[in-house]
Design a protein around this nucleic acid. Structure first.
Lengths: 114, 114
DNA sequence: GAGTTACTTAAGTAGCCGCTTAAGTGTCTT
DNA sequence: AAGACACTTAAGCGGCTACTTAAGTAACTC
């Protein structure tokens, strides 16, 4: 498990903003243009562009321009990477708890050794 | 699904820093004191305290002081909350993809209607 | 009670973040 | 060719972040 990953930094950083999470939520229901992403938001277009840039650099999103319209898509791989990091830590913690509880019940069954 | 959650903001923000992810990784192997957390790090103790504060405010970690030692523990609930948000978006996206592919194979079987 | 240990608080600083307005740049539409 | 549209770039600004050093405070240890 690699904690020192600029890619994970960027992914979690991107996820830390409610505006960007909103954009991701919208994108999870299907690809969208920049203006479609901007429509429900109360911020300027350039601000949206900057959020989009953060999302692209984190790898959470991919976009392509056709004519004058840029279409943005979710990139589930980066989403998985972030999810997996968390899941890994939680799994480790819970495995440790399980071992501890197993140990406790052993003591209960056999009586404290020595 | 709630994107406008300061708690999620703080959790992902906390996860966005490699030092804090390192601390969480250490804690997933068991509780630790502040100095134990600080030992492998090349930063001052006050800096560690500030990271710890970020982790506590995000709910990812809980700590308790006994005598002069503060012991820090992972809080799997907050970890799950962050994990679940990501999983939710990914699930939605993948369900959409599945429907789309099912639709494609319908077309292939039945021929394009109209 | 004097020193050591384990934090803790305070204050200051450099750099990044999210936003804005203003001014482009290509691409359709008429 | 003129205008509208969908971004895109640039520049600036206030607030937050991640440190630092210096100076506490409270709990052990001798």
């Amino acid at each position: 498990m690699l904690n020192d990953s600029p890619q994970l930094d960027r992914a979690f950083q991107a996820l830390a903003d409610p505006v960007r999470r909103g954009m991701l939520a919208r994108l999870s229901r299907g690809a969208a243009s920049v203006s479609e992403l901007a429509a429900p938001l109360d911020i300027s277009l350039p601000a949206v562009m900057q959020h989009l840039k953060a999302l692209e650099q984190s790898g959470l999103v991919r976009s392509e321009k056709k004519g004058r319209v840029r279409t943005v898509q979710l990139e589930p791989k980066a989403l998985s990477a972030a999810e997996a990091w968390i899941a890994g830590r939680r799994a480790e913690w819970e495995a440790r708890l399980d071992r501890f509880e197993a140990h406790l019940s052993t003591l209960k069954r056999d009586g404290e050794p020595q």
